[in-house]
Design a protein around this nucleic acid. Structure first.
Length: 903
RNA sequence: GCGAGGGUGGCCGAGCCUGGCCAAAGGCGGCGGACUUAAGAUCCGCUCGUGAAGGCGUACCUGGGUUCGAAUCCCAGCCCUCGCACCA
């Protein structure tokens, strides 16, 4: 449709003309542009001088907003930006709401890449790391992140890592540390071992999470944290973590891998008892053999005298994958605890050391792997479970792995699988309920320099001995370039005296996995200078847990599992009184470019400042909700840039040429209420951390204010309030811009420290908005359909009061009751005769779907305030009035649906 | 295979928890207009179909169901993404 019709007719002949003095006199294109780069330094200085981001130590219970602190890799990338833009926005919002806010930042400064970089750049890890930190700190400033820098921490600082050592000692005393020889993952490129969590599966092979090098195995004496002690609790606790994304909880559940079942003891004459774990005790009568892993004690025992076993164990080595269904029969036989039958005992590579007990009862009929093994070893297959529906099985060709009804199991025949398991557990002395976990202990030893030295001394006489607390920290010696572990080659570091016997001893040369550093850093932020412990326990009790924690999902089973473990361990040591560290977790999504994750290796990285730091902030927040991936498009970034300019231009124009009005008119009230509505809506969006929605609300208000400004000279107070509201609402997302706007608008103090706006009136804005929108739509429809070229007058008639009364009665009526009767029982309604009866009938028909409405007087006032929108859009005079019986519009007017007449 | 999360208009993407005010926000693209010598920028409007008074039709992956009423709740299926998987 041709919208020229809809333009306001220029300069009217009516009384309205006096209300449009500024029309047609819009300012020329913006005279000034907002330039974030020119103002950032100024505001940074002011913020710093005012200490606006510092959280006072005596705050009762600040809102703790935290982003996963960055590894000091050299410069911020888009993933960091997205992460910290979210925490910054939310922290700023909470601060403006009046909360004390703890929003700290620090540096995950230890780690192997610094050693590599030191090598490449002919420097040392410490200097390299410092350089990186300096650069990243500056970039954070540019981005406008409002951190409490007085709490900055750095894990590579002895004043930090001494507490890693101190905690190691406490864990050691509490029995949470083990030193054992283990077959561990070894990355030949990083020249260090890796925790299970740090080994990725890629194309069927196991590779190092950092460098992608295929991982091998080595047997080494290593330090472990016994996270498995908490397997049950870590698993159970997931159910209560309602503030965490389901996906993370799910990943952790998988990782912990809790399995309920039974432990069955098989008597093996000549060896002793052999225990097997099974989740399918009901299939026990189908067991036709036993098998143990090549690493099982039984295998080791037999290997000593049985060459076949020894050869097999040797041949299979660690390559269980290639060994397939191979195995070797031993001379032993086990006694079946139910049937008393003799079962052959095998050593088989498909049985894994670290799953269950490292031994299985082989039930070929009901387990895929056992079936494959039995077929290849020519073992009998005996079905003991059948489908309840009688559908039969493909035994012996294929195993039947579903649950069902027992058969061939003597007294248990006819029982359902679950029932059979229960009965067997009760009956059999050899079977006990048991739970196994996939989770393994956390290997924390690393054969690298740039990490926390493990505070242990090895003495030939006393064994491993803790370094006494008063000698902590065990500081890293100066870095020397070397091929292996620089610590091991440093004699002055290694050679020491045993703290117990004072004899000659050697220091442990392994350092800790850097995930130890990050497992409690959120506690150090509470009291970064605390000298008597890693953190002030009283403050921890008051301030923890973290209210909102934001970071990437890739840490689901690493960092996010470790912090849950640490917190529990700390609780059991008595340092804290809570067991979960994080209330609400947000995993920010990925920023894509051409459909690919932005990454150095893809060569599609956009630097944060490339489009302007604050534009990037705004764009990243407006593009999608925090958890969602989104595509970086230059076009959309431009949109964010222009939005800043629009806001700036509006405020600039207002303060530069202040043609304003003082008498208040109806449409000022409309705008005033619309400001309230925006505040209510945007506040809701911030609460839900829906920045993209908040921006939409802000944009809408800005558009309305522009229209208001252009409609006629704006009312000084209303317009200024509107603009100030824009500045306040956008402040958490674009703080520099907001300060500029606030300053131009002569707002009091700093906008980042200002009070969050509150609506002055009630905020059931949805009904009101809907009413105005629907009426505008109706007018558009009519103008369109009837093809009225140039409407001269629009008349809106609000329904008679008795209709509201009838409407209310209909809404309140029980569904299905005689609505017409109830309405017509009301005299004030029935007095209106046939019209009332007709309307009552119409209401009855729609009764279940009647929506809430505002009452007649309010509707009238609302439309009067909104009349300018009609005037502005259609260029017509607008009359709003109450309909009364007998006038031509009365019949069509309904509650919240005024009759419309257009001429 | 098991588990989790998703499939919305030209595209991106809200909404779904708490069913009706949803032909479905906002952005981008497209179209038209204002302003301009022109272009750019900026601003305004339109952007499922149809209709001579606010109506009707079709539409939120597909098919069923619940309900007076479903993008929203339930069931089944298809497809996509991710996690786990020789786990006994």
């Amino acid at each position: 449709m041709d919208r020229r019709r809809r333009r306001r007719v220029p300069s009217g002949t009516t009384e309205q003309s006096c209300r449009r003095p500024t029309q047609g006199q819009q300012r020329p294109a913006m005279s000034r542009r907002y330039n974030h780069a020119q103002v950032q330094e100024y505001w940074q200085r002011v913020w710093e001088r005012e200490g606006v981001y510092e959280c006072p130590d005596d705050a009762p219970d600040p809102t703790y907003v935290l982003g996963m602190f960055p590894y000091t890799s050299g410069s911020l990338h888009m993933g960091h930006i997205r992460n910290y833009v979210i925490t910054d926005g939310y922290a700023r919002y909470r601060r403006m709401c009046g909360d004390d806010v703890l929003h700290p930042i620090g540096w995950d400064a230890f780690g192997l890449p610094a050693e590599n970089a030191a090598h490449d750049h002919h420097t040392d890890p410490e200097s390299w790391t410092e350089t990186c930190i300096a650069r990243m700190r500056e970039e954070m400033g540019e981005m406008g992140f409002g951190y409490d820098w007085s709490r900055e921490i750095k894990t590579a600082d002895p004043s930090y890592y001494r507490w890693n050592q101190w905690l190691f000692a406490r864990f050691y005393e509490a029995g949470l540390v083990e030193y054992k020889s283990a077959t561990v993952n070894w990355c030949p490129d990083c020249e260090t071992v890796l925790a299970d969590e740090q080994v990725d599966d890629r194309d069927g092979g196991e590779v190092c999470w950092r460098c992608g090098t295929p991982v091998g195995r080595r047997d080494l004496d290593q330090w472990f944290f016994t996270i498995t002690d908490y397997a049950e609790e870590l698993h159970a606790g997931l159910d209560d973590l309602e503030g965490w994304p389901e996906s993370v909880r799910d990943i952790q559940r998988n990782w912990i891998g809790r399995r309920e079942g039974a432990r069955v003891a098989f008597e093996v004459p000549g060896y002793g008892e052999l225990e097997a774990f099974t989740a399918r005790l009901d299939t026990i009568c189908g067991a036709t053999y036993l098998a143990v892993s090549p690493g099982h004690d039984l295998a080791a025992t037999l290997a000593a005298e049985d060459d076949a076993v020894a050869d097999y164990v040797e041949a299979v080595g660690n390559g269980a994958e290639e060994a397939g269904t191979t195995g070797v029969e031993t001379d032993l036989a086990a006694v079946h605890p139910v049937t008393g039958a003799e079962l052959p005992v095998y050593v088989a590579a498909y049985v894994l050391d670290d799953v269950g007990t490292g031994a299985v009862m082989g039930v070929p009929a009901h387990n895929e792997r056992d079936h494959a093994f039995a077929v290849s070893q020519d073992l009998p297959i005996e079905g003991v479970v059948e489908p309840v529906d009688g559908s039969g099985t493909n035994l012996p060709a294929e195993p039947y792995t579903e649950e069902g009804m027992l058969a061939g199991s003597g007294e248990y025949d006819g029982l359902a699988s679950a029932a059979a398991r229960e009965r067997m557990l009760d009956d059999l002395d050899a079977a006990h309920p048991d739970v196994t976990y996939r989770l393994r202990d956390w290997l924390i030893s690393r054969q690298r320099y740039w990490g926390t030295p493990i505070p242990v001394v090895h003495c030939d006489d006393c064994g491993p001995v803790l370094v006494p607390d008063e000698e902590l920290p065990v500081e890293l010696p100066e870095f020397v370039q070397s091929t292996g572990n620089p610590l091991a080659e440093n004699d002055t570091f290694v050679e020491t005296a045993c703290p117990e016997c004072a004899g000659p001893a050697r220091r442990e040369t392994d350092t800790m996995d850097t995930f130890v550093d990050s497992s409690w850093y959120f506690l150090r932020f509470l009291s970064p200078e605390f000298e008597d412990g890693p953190f002030d326990p009283e403050r921890a009790d008051e301030w923890m847990p973290v209210d909102v924690y934001v970071g990437g999902e890739e840490h689901a089973v690493l960092h996010l599992l470790y912090i849950r473990f640490f917190t529990r361990a700390l609780a059991d040591i008595g340092l804290v009184d809570f067991r979960e560290p994080v209330d609400r977790l947000i995993n920010q999504g990925t920023v894509l470019y051409d459909g690919e994750k932005m990454s150095k290796s893809s060569g599609n990285v956009i630097a944060p400042h490339e489009y302007g730091a604050e534009t990037t902030r705004l764009f990243v927040l407006s593009a999608a909700h925090p958890e969602q991936d989104f595509e970086w498009t230059a076009k959309d970034v431009t949109g964010a840039y222009e939005f800043q300019q629009t806001l700036y231009g509006m405020v600039d124009a207002f303060v530069e040429r202040a043609a304003v009005r003082r008498e208040r008119a109806a449409h000022d009230d409309y705008v005033d209420r619309e400001i309230d509505r925006t505040i209510a809506a945007v506040t809701e969006d911030y609460e839900r951390i829906g920045f993209h929605q908040a921006i939409t609300g802000i944009r809408q208000l800005a558009r309305l204010l522009r229209r208001y400004r252009d409609y006629e000279t704006p009312h000084e107070a209303v317009y200024r309030r509107g603009l100030r509201t824009l500045a306040l609402l956008v402040a958490p997302m674009a703080p520099y811009l907001a300060e500029e706007l606030w300053n131009m608008l002569r707002g009091e103090g700093l906008v980042v420290a200002a009070d969050w706006p509150t609506p002055r009136t009630d905020t059931d804005y949805r009904i009101e908005r809907r009413l105005v929108e629907a009426t505008l739509d109706d007018v558009r429809d009519i103008v369109d359909v009837v093809d009225i070229d140039d409407p001269a007058e629009i008349e809106l008639a609000v329904a008679q009061d008795w209709k509201y009364r009838a409407y209310r009665i209909a809404r309140d009526a029980d569904p299905g009751s005689a609505v017409v009767g109830q309405i017509m029982d009301d005299e004030t309604v029935s007095a209106h005769g046939e019209a009332a009866a007709d309307y009552a009938a119409a209401l009855q028909e729609r009764q279940p779907g009647l929506e809430p409405v505002v009452d007649g007087d309010r509707e009238l006032a609302l439309l009067e305030r909104a009349a300018w929108l009609f005037e502005d859009e259609f260029g017509a005079d607008v009359t709003v009035r109450r309909a009364s019986d007998g006038d031509d519009l009365a019949a069509r007017a309904k509650p919240n649906k005024p009759a419309i007449h257009i001429r």
